[in-house]
Write a protein that binds this DNA or RNA. Structure first.
Lengths: 145, 145
DNA sequence: CTTCATGCAAACCCTTTGCACGTCG
DNA sequence: CGACGTGCAAAGGGTTTGCATGAAG
């Protein structure tokens, strides 16, 4: 559950047209809890009879991803999922049970990349870190301690 | 360029049959430089007239992945690539230019996951870290300093 | 009005599956 | 010889594209 306004604003600021389908997409995305797939949105759109086609959904997701307000995750299963997020560099903690995600910054990861760079001679330009586990709620119901 | 024997041994140890197609796959994989896709292997197999079908290639990759001697990477492009590697937990440094990869262990990443766990309340079970950049050779030819 | 965005359906991957045949041990 | 593995072709699922129509600025 994020704010649809943030998504719409991002489009606006980047000079894209604020069309009805795009506003609807922003609404759909902001209603998602945790990560979601393109297929989820297709289903939701059709359930709500929004009249949005598959193609538009994929195109809008691409757009939001370019704008950095949505990020694509590669789940261990191989599926592609998306999460709404702030357009700054960060990482995600992903609940394997309910799919909830949380953004985290990375105070220590820079040290890791520097250390790897030193040891391998690579020039590290970017990195991806994804943390999988159970969110407090799911951990509580699974292992009640 | 890794060692085909390591791949074959892994199959053997796990009790899988050492068939001709699987030996050929081991050879194909060990001849790859850097990461490769299933499609790469399909092309190579057909170029060398090995008579190995697509299905077998996907099945063998799955198998090698289960055995931990090959790992699947999700490239920023969204493509799935594979790299041969040691069956222990580690991470990869990936050259964005030539695709060469190197395994690295992660002396500092544990601290990062612990810190994230503490801050978010998540129980972190696993993580994926991928580092992208330029290997020494490619960095040298691009930015000769 | 002109450009940009949409919907639809078809095209296009990549990957998996069903099944009869081959072969490893 | 019996279970396991293979090839083929077809099915499947997710994503992209072409094109005529429609809306945004």
């Amino acid at each position: 559950m994020t704010d649809a306004t943030a998504l719409i604003d991002a489009l606006d600021r980047a000079g894209y047209r604020l069309t009805e389908p795009r506003r609807a997409m922003a609404g759909l995305i902001s209603d998602q809890t945790g990560h979601f797939t393109a297929a989820d949105l297709v289903v939701d759109a059709r359930t709500r009879r929004l009249g949005i086609g598959r193609a538009t959904i994929f195109r809008a997701l691409d757009l939001f991803e370019d704008l950095g307000v949505v990020e694509r995750l590669d789940l261990p299963s191989g599926d592609h999922a998306y999460v709404p997020c702030e357009p700054i560099h960060h990482h995600h903690v992903i609940c394997s049970s309910c799919g909830r995600t949380e953004d985290v910054d990375d105070p220590g990861i820079d040290a890791v990349t520097r250390s790897v760079a030193r040891r391998t001679g690579f020039r590290i330009d970017s990195h991806r870190l994804e943390l999988f586990g159970l969110c407090p709620a799911c951990a509580g119901s699974v292992d009640p301690r």
